[in-house]
Design a protein around this nucleic acid. Structure first.
Length: 187
DNA sequence: TAGAAGGACACGG
DNA sequence: CCGTGTCCTTCTA
């Protein structure tokens, strides 16, 4: 299967081909789709280029916190590629059902020019990252989940649950605000 | 003092 | 039922 066909697969089709990992793989594909037009060189399989102007460079010298509203992440790539319309209903649900915290963190990590001052990779190949601004990351997470009372204490508790689940692991010599993804999740 | 670790329970899709 | 969200205690840099 080539990239065009892969990108056209629905979550249900992923689950059919890989019942134990379909949702995870599909969620990862969504992250790549969302991060496709970044500082990365456009991959040879990316066809459509958005000529939309960039919103604005990260405004550093702002005294108070700015009202950052960058939600428009509807990856509705309605690809008319491989004829595999197994999805019956046709509900154009943008994105996955409910984003998981680890997916959200990777989403932020995929846009360093937007969130690099809040969260960034320390060792990308090993999945090590650092939260530079815990308040801001927690606020963004709360906004995404519609949880106004979210804070870093609660967010970090959820991250710690990932240790038992094998999604993240403790770094060798632990530093504050530094976490590490486990193997498939850091890709 | 902020964060790390993790138990306990609530909640909601 | 699972993935948190919430709250709390204890420990540590």
């Amino acid at each position: 299967m080539d990239g065009i066909a892969l990108v056209a697969l629905t979550e249900e089709e992923f689950n059919r081909r890989a019942p134990q990992a379909g949702s995870t793989l599909y969620a990862q594909l969504e992250i790549w789709k969302a991060a496709r037009h970044e500082t990365w060189r456009p991959a040879p399989w990316s066809e459509q280029e958005q000529t939309s102007p960039k919103p604005a460079p990260p405004g550093l010298p702002s005294a108070d916190d700015m009202s950052d509203d960058e939600d428009s992440e509807s990856v509705s790539a309605s690809a008319a590629g491989a004829g595999s319309g197994v999805s019956a209903g046709g509900k154009a649900k943008s994105g996955s059902t409910h984003i998981h915290l680890w997916q959200f963190l990777k989403e932020l990590l995929a846009s360093p020019q937007v969130h690099g001052s809040a969260i960034r990779w320390l060792d990308r190949s090993n999945g090590v990252f650092k939260i530079e601004d815990s308040v801001r990351v927690a606020r963004l997470w709360g906004k995404r989940k519609n949880r106004p009372a979210m804070n870093y204490d609660k967010l970090s508790r959820s991250i710690r649950q990932y240790y038992k689940k094998g999604i993240m692991k403790k770094t060798e010599r632990s530093q504050r605000l530094v976490y590490q993804f486990c193997h498939p999740y850091c890709l």
